[in-house]
Every structure is written in C-alpha cells, then in structure tokens.
Design a binder for these strands. Sequence first.
DNA 1: GACAGGGTGTACCGATCTGTACATATAGGC
DNA 2: GCCTATATGTACAGATCGGTACACCCTGTC
Lengths: 188, 188
Amino acid sequence: MRPTKRDELVDKALKAFYANGFHATGMDRLVEETGISKTSMYKHFQSKEALILAVLQRRDAQFRDWLFGRMERLGKTPRGQMLAMFDALEEWFEEPGFRGCLFIKAASEFQEPGHPIHAQAATHKALIYDHLRSLAAQGGADNPALLARQLLVLKEGAIVAAQVEGCRAAAAQAKDAAKTLLDNALAH
Amino acid sequence: MRPTKRDELVDKALKAFYANGFHATGMDRLVEETGISKTSMYKHFQSKEALILAVLQRRDAQFRDWLFGRMERLGKTPRGQMLAMFDALEEWFEEPGFRGCLFIKAASEFQEPGHPIHAQAATHKALIYDHLRSLAAQGGADNPALLARQLLVLKEGAIVAAQVEGCRAAAAQAKDAAKTLLDNALAH
DNA sequence: GACAGGGTGTACCGATCTGTACATATAGGC
DNA sequence: GCCTATATGTACAGATCGGTACACCCTGTC
C-alpha cells in the first residue's frame, strides 16, 4: 500500500471535479489533468462513482477541519465562533478558485436522495449542523436546534449567492443577519 | 410559426432537465421522453445550449409568476408578503417532484461566470432580489437592499437544505428567522 | 544476472454523446 | 388533383463516455 499516489489522485480529481463538475469531467480528462493513467485509477477505485465518493470524503474532512479551525481561531465564545463562521466564509469566497460548495454541486448532479453521492453530501451538511447545534447549546440558546438550522440556512444561502451571482458581500450580509438571530436567541 | 410544438418541447425538456440534470440528460433521452424527433428539436434550437437557455427562460417566468403570485395572495402588507415567500417555499418543498432550484443546478453545472447559462441563472436570482428590495422599501426598511439580500439568502439556504438534506422544515425555520430580521429592520 | 510480482501505460471495447444528411409526410394555393 | 414548402422521422457521423485487456517496466531477493 502506498497512499501517496492514491492521495495525489484524489487531490487532483477533487480540483478537477470542483472546477468543471462531475458529469462534465470525464475519466480521460482526469488522466490529462492528473498525469495518472487510467489503469492506475481503476486499480485504486473500481468506478468513477467510487472515486467521487473518495473525493467527497476528502473534501468533507478538509473543509470541516478548515472551517471549524477558523471559527475556533477567530471566535472565543460560542457566539463568537458562530459569527466567525461567516468571516471564514468571506475568506473562502475571496479565494481565486472559489466556485461554490462541492456538496451542493454533488447533490445537484446526483439527485436521487438514495444515491450514495447524494447521501454523502447530506451527511456533510448534517455534520456541520451538529457542530453548530453544539455551539448553540453551549451558548445557551433557547432552542439550539432551531438556531443551528437557521445559521446553516444562512451559510448555504450565502454560498449560493456567492457562487451564482458572484456576490461576495453575501458573507457579511449573512453575518449581519446571524447577529440579529443570535441576539434574539441567546441568553447573555 | 406554430408555438405549440416548440412550447411542448420546452415544457417537457424542462421536466427532464429538472429531474435528471443537464449533462446527464442527453438529446436522445429527450427524444424518448418528449416524443419529439431530434430533427425537430434542432429546427427549433440550434444547439442543446440554446434549448437549455429557453428552458431557463420558461422556468424563470413560470417560477416568478408563481412565487410573486403566492406572496401577493398570502400576504397583504409588504411585510406579510415577504414572510409569505417562505410559506410559498414550503408548499413547493412539499410537492412530490421537488428537486431543488433549477437555477442553482444550472449554475453548478455551467460554472464559468461568463457562460450564458450561468449568467441566466444569476439574472433569475437578481430579479427575485429586485422584487424583495422593492417590498422592503415599501415596508419602510432602514436598509432595503440589505434586508432584501438577507431574505434572499434565507430563501436560497432553505432551498438547499430542502434539496440536499430533504429538510422540508427549512422553510418554516427560515420564516422564523425572517420574522426576527423583519422585526429588527422595519419601522412599524 | 535470473526471477517474481505489483504498479503502470497503450490501445481498445461497446455505449452514448451532440449534431446532421436525407428521405418522407403533411398542409395550403390554384 | 397537383405542386410547393415546411415540418417531421430515420439513420448515421465523429467524438467522447466509462471501463478493460494486455504488454511493459521497475524494484527487491537470491
């Protein structure tokens, strides 16, 4: 087992899928962009779908590590961390290669709710929700589940606005809305 | 000119694209599902992309008519109309064939911001924003542009939550958040 | 150097992709 | 009924899709 080559494949495939979409990125094109032969790909993954699932797993870990890390760094209190999520989003939106959320794309291209790829996208969102709910509970929200859901809705909405309309201010606008919601929901 | 056949094609193509995605729906499959021959399609539209653009135009008109109509019907005041948007969303989410927003899908599958399809998706969102800003101004919001953006973010976020996670409660949760925002932003 | 074994690249498979050439059906003017 | 013109359906073209068969190379052991 040499994880390096496999990891390299997953990393480069992630970039290609993120930039061009899943259906639009053929295995042949992946060969060109990664420099890895198709045989090697199919040694590591039995199908394109298996590769996509691995890509989503990688992205899930990568994104949550990054997001939760930024939140922890930029915010001290639970309330501060929840607000910091939107500062982190703004940083993300400003990155040159920003193209929206890979999981929204995945769920859009593989629509059947029972499809493994769709299910994995849902799982990613659920994990972020769990984190937010935990923070909301720590912050003393009256209804942590509701607050977490609302913050998640603001997050997804901001991502869509940034991706579809190129509206990077969406992060700050969502943060402003979040502030109002937090003031309303947190005992302090 | 007989608009009927062309309209029938656009309608059925809309359903097919909505259910299965743009890249995943080939022209041959469109022939099967619409019962219209490929030659006829290419007589009416010079390419698949042109057909997709027509589909998006149809959907834009259809969706805005429906949404703004429901808002007007369910809400009397500007504030009531803005809140009613989320009731309308909930109705939409409950429909059996609900699969999320066609324009988010379109922007996801055609990612280059300069691409005509992506641009058309952005236009659709901008038109909804305009309507919301107008309502926010009528309602006497301190900052109508900001409030409209925030409501739009809530709307997109709720759609994503409903589509990806199958969370239909997202509409009600977003409405609850919108209520808080409106209380905060409207003079009354 | 002989050998074994796993990772690699080339060439190819049938199916499907978008788009087209051509033959056919259909409707209206006289 | 006949001619013209437009709309339609069939069959196909070239490219690309996901996936595979097979020959190759490269490394470690003796």
